[in-house]
């Protein structure tokens, strides 16, 4: 007797959403791998936070946060998406735990402020002030949770943690914000990214 299995197809709109989520999760992985030499830091600076900003700006608070969660899960199970192409639960639970855990919250915060709620607007029409506000608050959350994680995991005081993991990296975040605004304002982005 032959076995029959009921096949449940995924709706076209859901396919689009899953692909968009995976696109930003993979993009975040690529941006985490790309390192620019940075004179203030002995370690190169990656564009990981730029990926978090872009996920919130282009996908909105909910799907932006989901894309970042997919990124974290992909990294935890072994895809080389974390900083400098690393992966594994160990990296997720290392001194970076606070930074990584803050990313979905930061993407949701950026998305909520840029889009002014859950319904999405065309991000290219959003004012620069709103974009800057969204990314600044998101950066605040990233560094707040990131430094708390750093302090707990490495048994450090708040000042020492800020010196090692905050002070030298904060100016680079400003450059990433400026980069994100230039990306949003670019006429070279495909319309499919904005049209829904």
């Amino acid at each position: 007797m032959s076995e029959h299995q009921h096949v449940e197809l995924v709706a076209d709109r859901t396919v689009d959403r899953l692909v968009r989520v995976a696109l930003f999760a993979a993009l975040l992985g690529v941006l985490s791998y790309v390192a620019f030499p940075y004179p203030l830091s002995p370690a190169p600076v990656t564009l990981q936070v730029l990926g978090v900003f872009l996920a919130g700006i282009f996908l909105g608070p909910i799907w932006g946060a989901i894309a970042v969660v997919v990124y974290l899960v992909a990294g935890a199970i072994g895809l080389p998406v974390f900083s400098m192409g690393q992966s594994g639960i160990g990296v997720l639970l290392s001194e970076r735990v606070g930074f990584l855990v803050s990313f979905p919250i930061a993407a949701a915060m950026t998305g909520a402020i840029v889009h002014g709620g859950r319904s999405l607007v065309d991000p290219t029409t959003v004012s620069t002030l709103r974009l800057v506000l969204g990314m600044t608050l998101a950066t605040g959350v990233i560094y707040l949770l990131g430094l708390i994680g750093f302090m707990i995991v490495l048994s450090m005081g708040p000042v020492e943690a800020f010196v090692v993991a905050g002070l030298v990296f904060l100016p680079a975040e400003v450059a990433k914000m400026a980069g994100a605004i230039a990306i949003v304002r670019s006429a070279r982005l495909p319309r499919s990214l904005i049209d829904r």
């Binding site: 396919v15 689009d16 690529v30 400003v174 982005l189 990214l193």
Partner: peptide, 28 residues
């Protein structure tokens, strides 16, 4: 640094979106 980030980000994002759009059509 911010100009480099912008140029790099624009080109990577545009290429990634076009790639993802093709994948989406193929999956549907």
């Amino acid at each position: 640094l911010h100009r480099r980030i912008a140029v790099f980000g624009i080109v990577v994002l545009a290429a990634a979106v076009r790639d993802a759009d093709r994948t989406s059509v193929a999956m549907r």
